[in-house]
Design a protein around this nucleic acid. Structure first.
Lengths: 229, 229
DNA sequence: GTTCATCTTAATGGATACATTAATGTATTT
DNA sequence: AAATACATTAATGTATCCATTAAGATGAAC
């Protein structure tokens, strides 16, 4: 990656802090406070916050600081509608342009994902999931779609993170189904079946969304009906 | 809009400078130089540049400054592929959620557009075109899609600007067809025909793209075949 | 007791001085 | 003549100081 500036460092650190649950949604992130925590001056922190606001991770309130946009079901609907269609597009595009090496890379990711799942390694699982989705975004060979996908992926991750923590078991049921869906998507891309790849990806994201807002105790039932997708 | 910060001012000014052709693609935009031109310190200029880089308008080179990404036909293809599909989505979404007031607003914009065209006012025409496309993006009621649309719209405008200046006549031929296409799109939105609205928007963007890269002297022929779209 | 005005405070916004760094040019050595 | 090392320069990167501003608190007037 880029030459780890202090700004870059601040940027990554702030994301890490949020993902490590150091801030609840609604908390204010203050330049001064963060600068002290990260042992930097306000300047790089300020740039990093500006970037995060620009990317839509944070909201800015006039003289109150930046805050994590409070998750609402309405916002989640928008996030996943956008993600479903954007990733559908990248999958379509990836199916058209993917090289042999790309397919190998994706299959390797799927292997790692499988391993992470059987060893109950949530951290690794989360990483491979990111590699999968953003990998396909990259393989679309369209830097604009890729950028938007990265953005909406991270935004949706905030939901997955918060809701997962509250509702799911050590291994959530959707995690048992996701790998199969991933495999089917890679197969479609390998066959260069653009339409199928796009459609499968849309269904996959839609499934993820549906599972997020389904209480655990009724998920089993819900999943049976999802088979008909 | 927001309380015109100096940063906001710098941001808009830099865009204006680019659109006024003060910089050729490939030129370096330097913090110090811009700060002098705009009579500001480097701080707001720096933030504005950072924002523009984040939005993909500018590229950053290590110690050389920021530059306008050099337009290539490959990049244009990506830009318009993304724009076609994104705006297709917002049009679909807008058709689902548009209120009576929204429709009135769109029709008002179309009136202004017509006026700008018959008076050969390029500046007004460009403004109303922006109002139309970004208005529909807003009416999608999806802040994420709206954000991405704004972004890709501006990016595509760089192409329209540069190519338009070199190749077109006082009134370019596609400008004579665009208003009709706009009207059809608004009609579909007014009828809440989501699929039709999306499809018409995709065709419209595709048409714009096709016209951009068609030399003027063969446009007349090309347009006849486009009628079959 | 309530309301309005003003004062305080705590935060960001902006300017500037200083540090760092990458590129380039130059001189010296082989 | 070429190559390498060092110095210069021109840009960004960083820290800090001062300005501004909005929110909240406090107090006085009605």
């Amino acid at each position: 990656m880029a030459k780890e500036n202090l700004e870059e460092f601040a940027y990554r650190s702030i994301i890490r802090l949020i993902l490590k649950n150091k801030f609840k949604p609604g908390d204010f992130l203050l330049e001064i406070e963060l600068a002290e925590t990260l042992k930097l001056s306000r300047t790089p922190v300020r740039h990093a916050l500006g970037r995060l606001v620009g990317e839509g991770f944070l909201e800015k309130r006039k003289k109150k600081g930046c805050l994590i946009s409070v998750p609402t079901s309405e916002d989640a609907k928008h996030v996943f509608f956008a993600r479903e269609n954007l990733e559908g597009l990248t999958a379509t595009s990836a199916a058209m342009y993917a090289t042999e090496d790309d397919i190998i890379e994706l299959r390797t990711i799927l292997e790692k994902e499988k391993k992470a799942l059987v060893t109950y390694n949530k951290e690794d699982y989360s990483t491979t999931n990111e590699d999968f989705h953003l990998g396909i975004a990259r393989m679309s060979r369209n830097i604009y779609l890729e950028k938007y996908c990265r953005n909406i992926f991270w935004r949706s991750n905030i939901y997955i993170f918060f809701f997962d923590n509250y509702y799911t078991q050590p291994t959530s049921i959707d995690e048992q189904y996701t790998p199969d869906q991933h495999i089917q998507i890679v197969d479609a891309i390998a066959e260069h079946d653009a339409e199928k790849a796009g459609e499968l990806m849309r269904q996959h994201i839609h499934f993820t969304y549906a599972m997020l807002f389904t209480p655990w105790n009724v998920k089993k039932k819900a999943i049976r009906s999802t088979h008909s997708l």
